[in-house]
């Protein structure tokens, strides 16, 4: 079984000019298609750096990273943009919805950059919103939705391109316990439907929802024993 996502010896050094900080010190990671993986770690552990490289928002200083069989570790920013658009669905802690646009327009955004025509775009965005249970909220702006609803809009946005990987960065960090439960339940549904999910968090009980849990400490990754979830 070939890995959907394969990292070998990934290093990331931030050179401030005065001092070089090695945020990642050789990460090996394989994620199979259909996996639900959590990456846990306290702040300062290199967790955000790993998320940026996983999400093709940044490139590693050393090592290799293959996503869907393609080496993305030396791509230009323009090439990475295309990979992000086609392969990765992001769910952010801050939701990152555009306040001036309706839920529907927000979900359409990645399709606009994919060059999908207007009618098909609308149809797919509506379907994605229906998928997360917001069929009746398509014309609402983010300010008119609760935190949990906003996060569900951003999950719809992550789903709408039918990406290889859903990458969720602290998706429940800004949510109350009820909404947290909602969003995690949604991830389980997506996982059950065959989606590959990488969840990055510092909360052990959120990480425990995943199929497999990795722990990052001081720029190094180690697999933790599953403590529950659906292993």
């Amino acid at each position: 079984m070939s890995a959907l996502l394969r990292m070998r010896g990934v290093r990331k050094v931030y050179d401030t000019g005065v001092i070089a900080v090695e945020a990642l010190r050789g990460i090996d990671l394989d994620v199979e298609a259909g996996d639900f993986v959590a990456i846990m770690g306290p702040s300062g552990s290199g967790k955000s750096t790993l998320m940026h490289i996983l999400g093709c928002l940044d490139v590693p200083t050393g090592g290799s990273y293959e996503l869907g069989g393609v080496d993305v570790s030396h791509m230009s920013e323009a090439e990475l943009a295309v990979v992000r658009n086609a392969q990765i669905g992001f769910v952010f802690q801050q939701f990152n919805l555009l306040a001036s646009m309706t839920a529907l327009r927000n979900v359409e955004l990645p399709l606009i950059y994919a060059g999908v025509g207007r009618a098909e775009r609308r149809e797919r965005a509506q379907a994605a919103l229906a998928r997360v249970g917001l069929a009746d909220r398509v014309e609402h702006r983010p300010g008119e939705l609760s935190g949990g609803q906003q996060q569900r809009v951003s999950v719809a946005r992550a789903l709408v391109t039918d990406p290889t990987l859903i990458l969720a960065d602290e998706p429940t960090g800004n949510l109350d316990s009820v909404s947290t439960h909602d969003v995690l339940a949604l991830f389980h549904e997506l996982h059950d439907a065959g989606r590959t999910i990488v969840l990055i968090t510092h909360e052990a009980d959120v990480a425990a929802e995943a199929h497999r849990v990795w722990r990052i400490t001081d720029g190094l990754l180690s697999e933790a024993a599953p403590s529950g979830g659906r292993a």
């Binding site: 323009a78 658009n85 990152n96």
Partner: peptide, 10 residues
Amino acid sequence: LRKALGATPA
């Protein structure tokens, strides 16, 4: 955000 969602620099 637009870049993360696939907007190229161009």
